[in-house]
Design a binder for these strands. Sequence first.
DNA 1: AGCTAACTGCTTGTGAGATACACAGAAGTC
DNA 2: GACTTCTGTGTATCTCACAAGCAGTTAGCT
Lengths: 241, 241
Amino acid sequence: MSTLPRYLQLLWGLEPTGRRGPKPGRSVAEIGAAAVAIADRAGLSAVSMKSVAEAVGFTPMSLYRYVDSKDELQAVMLDVAYGPPDLDYGNRDWRSRISLWATEIAERRLAHPWTVELTPSTPPLTPNAIAWMEAGLEALADTPLTSQQRLSAMLAVDVWGQNHVRQSTRMGLVGPVDPESPQGSYLELITELIDPDRFPHLAKAGPEGLGDDDEDFYVEEFERGLGLLLDGIEALIARAG
Amino acid sequence: MSTLPRYLQLLWGLEPTGRRGPKPGRSVAEIGAAAVAIADRAGLSAVSMKSVAEAVGFTPMSLYRYVDSKDELQAVMLDVAYGPPDLDYGNRDWRSRISLWATEIAERRLAHPWTVELTPSTPPLTPNAIAWMEAGLEALADTPLTSQQRLSAMLAVDVWGQNHVRQSTRMGLVGPVDPESPQGSYLELITELIDPDRFPHLAKAGPEGLGDDDEDFYVEEFERGLGLLLDGIEALIARAG
DNA sequence: AGCTAACTGCTTGTGAGATACACAGAAGTC
DNA sequence: GACTTCTGTGTATCTCACAAGCAGTTAGCT
């Protein structure tokens, strides 16, 4: 049994009782929240050990009492940004359940667009992240799929949704406009580069597929893609059931 | 019309003719190849402006004649790593075509596992990346889907495949073992953390779903997930046709 | 009550990395 | 042959993440 990294112990409330020494001035959650606030306000690049430390009234090195590396800090940030899942599945069917699940996650991600930009180097083990995974599996609980199939299906939905949010926010379709992204220029560039003779399919898809940066393009495309995945799962269920 | 970034001009061979001054000593492609070699040998973190410069016989600052930032260098690296698509669709049906497409991309990614770790901040506009997208769309060309639907479907497949490679390499199922990743410990940690009462579904899926790190788990799971997506696309086609 | 071990946050320091700027020589143009 | 434009270079700055040792604090033991 390998011992848990400190930030996980702290997040899960697993510290041994009867500790000596001064009480910690802040909690990991507070530190994470401060980092989240900075990222929300000034972008991910503004989150440094120094800036976070200042925000909580620490010196940079003090943060290392709570977190062993910046990577771990980012894991905490994700946990704080997602928050606990709050889903009422009622007596919906599985299709409607994962839809709800996927939509809710997407909402949290949209609220903190930087969440889809950082790529954790280790699988998430923080409480909220775990809780969301649990909720996703629960959505598929009454299907005849094996737990492995459920896991795969859920992962597919999750990854797809994450990517959708990423693409949408980068193109400025949704959410607060990131000042440091060129957003609009992509379309200009692509039409400039794509020679219709060499890339006929792309040439057709480019303007048509990306052209209407309507407000609700995000929603339409979300439903389109999610539907595709759900149909795939449905086929899997049909075969298994 | 916004003007193209230099590295794209160079990659696409769009430099204006009749230039004065000395010829460039190297090409962007060479620089990219050097960076790729370093990443393959020593990991992504070993790729710095300095190390790449040394590899091509330059000083760090010289690289900025070819590439405006490290981000752009990474875009070049991806282009070099993917290489041009070399697919023979023959007279397969669409299902078999995208399968081939997805499999081929996955192979390239496996050959350079770091490709799935870096997240380009801008959509890919480099020649090979574009060519791969074109090939993906071509695979769906004779379906009754709109170009927008084709684009979405292709993107879904691509994102899923990328994630699959990422997960697999991180868990050490496939490819060269990254010395700086803890790999095995995840399973221990998760079983240590997941209280079966609070997270019943995960508790069941965890050991069962991730347990058999067999060699061919990668392939099985690849086919499973890809099949799910293809079934989704098929449903879409059925509805559209 | 006094002692001690374990813990707190702080101070100072280091090494790496990306990138700005001004320059000397090369290769075209007139 | 003079002018211009582009090449690669040397030097310097600025920001980070992170290392190591320190002084004050507190819970439990004697």
